[in-house]
Computed example of a mutant assay.
Amino acid sequence: MAAGHTFNTYRITWPDVPGRTLIVVPTKNALSFLKTTVESIERQTGRADYELVIVDHESDDRATRDYLARLAAEGRARIHPYRGRFNFSRMNNEAVRACGEDCPFVLFLNNDVEIVSEGWLARLRSLAGRHDVGAVGPMLVYGNDLVQHAGVVLGLNGPAEHAFKLVPAYLDRVRNAGPNAALTATRDVSAVTGACLMMRRSVFEEAQGFDETLDIGFNDTDLCLRVGSLGYRILYDGDVVIRHYESATRNAAEALLKHPENTAAFTARWAEPIAAGDPFYNPQFASEGADHVLRRNKPLPRQVAIRVRRPSSAKGMLGGAALGKSLAGFGESVSA
């Protein structure tokens, strides 16, 4: 245990778990972003700790193709070619099947990120290596250091939305802890973003990977909910920060319009837990607009019903059957 980022908070370091991590990065062209991602991984990570596989979706830019060839020739990355219509879920599933045999951990990473935190991989691995944990995700910030992701909240601004979006990650160059240190703590969440998602490969296979019918949207949240239904915990770790160069001005509604079929399928599949309210989000908080602020209207009675946490002997959470029923029985969020 060590001092945390802010007054009266503490950082718990779990024992590291040995084993290489398969880092999967899908891309099509986007050379400048891809180079930033690869070079930041190499700068912040010991080479023996990971195997980098870049899923090349028909890149036709000469400079990008030359760069990929150079990475492969120098042994810095494996290049897995992908052909056909874009399908994020299938691209990642194929990469794990083709390249993950010798890696007990797998980390899914976007091609437009930059690793900021030293020791990031060991930190995420130590959490993902716990027997009760199914998946872990870090804080992601935009290029202007506003929060892009600090966990996913079910039923926020639609089926699901990132928590603390556009909140400053730093105040006078010091980490912004947020309410109850929610931005810097390690805590339970319903899901984390696939832009940086770490898990044991055995858990990924137990959950049968990403659902390939969700080709663009909500595939990461769906995976996390299915992992949770198996009895594992999903953790957000605020100690690790990754810069994500996704546009900070993208409107959530516009994003939904890009994959209406995925949105409809996800909403229908998880209608009951969405309606019940996220078990790790205070029902007195708003479900529309900015999150973690008091709602103006009263919550529904079912959303403020007592929630009891019944840990199983196997994995520390409810396991098994229908997530729609079991989610309503989970307790309030606690630090991991």
Score class of each variant (00 low, 15 high):
A3H: 09
H5C: 06
Y10D: 09
W14I: 03
D16V: 13
D16I: 11
G19S: 07
T27Y: 00
A30E: 14
S32G: 00
S32H: 04
F33D: 14
T36Q: 14
T36I: 07
T36W: 03
V38M: 04
E39H: 15
R43D: 13
T45G: 11
T45R: 07
G46Y: 02
A48W: 06
I54F: 07
V55F: 04
D56W: 10
A63I: 06
A63V: 08
D66E: 15
L68Q: 06
L71G: 10
A72S: 13
G75Q: 06
G75A: 07
R76Q: 09
R76C: 05
R78F: 12
I79H: 06
H80M: 03
P81A: 09
G84D: 06
R85C: 01
R85E: 02
N87M: 14
R90K: 13
M91L: 14
N92D: 09
F105E: 03
F108L: 12
E114G: 13
E114W: 01
I115W: 01
V116G: 04
V116L: 08
E118W: 01
G119S: 04
G119A: 09
L121C: 09
R123N: 08
S126N: 10
L127I: 13
V133G: 05
G134L: 05
M139T: 13
L140S: 09
H149Q: 11
G151F: 06
V153M: 08
N157L: 13
A163W: 05
A169R: 15
A169M: 14
Y170L: 14
A177N: 05
G178Q: 05
G178T: 10
V189A: 03
V189H: 03
G194C: 12
M198P: 05
M199K: 02
R200F: 06
S202D: 11
V203L: 01
E205S: 04
G209Q: 07
T213H: 11
L214N: 01
D215H: 13
D215N: 11
F218G: 00
G231C: 05
Y232I: 02
Y232N: 06
G238W: 03
I242C: 04
Y245Q: 03
L256P: 04
H259W: 13
P260G: 08
A264W: 08
A265L: 15
T267A: 15
T267D: 01
A268Q: 14
R269A: 09
I274Q: 00
G277W: 04
P279E: 06
Y281R: 05
Y281K: 04
Y281F: 15
A286I: 10
E288H: 11
A290N: 10
D291I: 10
D291V: 08
V293A: 00
K298Y: 07
P299V: 13
P299C: 12
L300D: 14
A305G: 09
I306S: 10
V308R: 12
R309I: 09
R310T: 12
A314I: 13
K315V: 14
G320W: 07
K325N: 14
G331K: 05
A336V: 12
